[in-house]
Amino acid sequence: MSLLRCTAVTKRFGGLKALDGVDLEVGAGEIVGLVGPNGSGKTTLLSTIAGSLPVSGGRIEFQGRDVTRLSSHRRAHAGIARTFQIPRPLGSFDVLGNVATAAMFGRDRVSRSEAIERAHGVLKRIGLDGHAGSDVTTLTLHEHKFLEIGRALALDPRLILLDEVLGGLNPAEAAAGMELIASLRDDGRSVIYIEHNVRAVTALADRMYVLDRGRNLFDGTPTEVVGDDRVVAAYLGGGARA
């Protein structure tokens, strides 16, 4: 059974159809890459899955349960966590506080002391244990991005939605990020992973979906996706293969 199934998901912003009948499926322990040109609806789809945006049509099932109308906090309790493209740490909490707050209200409602303990574990895993008491404004870009992943991990989710978490990182930082994402699969967690860097996605993903102008363009293995003419055309323009 699929962990997540999106069926004909549609999202309108006034007269603009950002998503137009998108289908997507994620299995347990699977990393699914979601790619597409700018404005193709990737982040919008992620937001509808997380419950940050209500859908205009279609259905979203998580673990066989219809979650289409559930609010984002209920989806977090159900086991869906997300990161944001532009890191949004809570500025008046330190690094540990950011992660512990996520742990406190996530899938398991843990006590304050348990949340702190879990947060320390998460910080160690993402390599920020040396910054536990630091002000979040002192973090570098890659630390901010890892903190986003850490906060999502602290919810102990079954599905993590990653929105361009490697964007803007140098090759060494990106490699560490890819290693971290791959380790999520080893935990048995599923991941939907949006990234502009197609090479990074193909290296990590078990399967990929390609969106174009709010619609499904193609899905398949990374090898199939990068070899498909329609995908190349969508990214590079119609005459790219000519």
Partner: peptide
């Protein structure tokens, strides 16, 4: 500080 983030945490 950030209601959407708090809700994404499960608040």
């Amino acid at each position: 500080q950030d209601q959407p983030i708090a809700e994404a945490f499960g608040v």
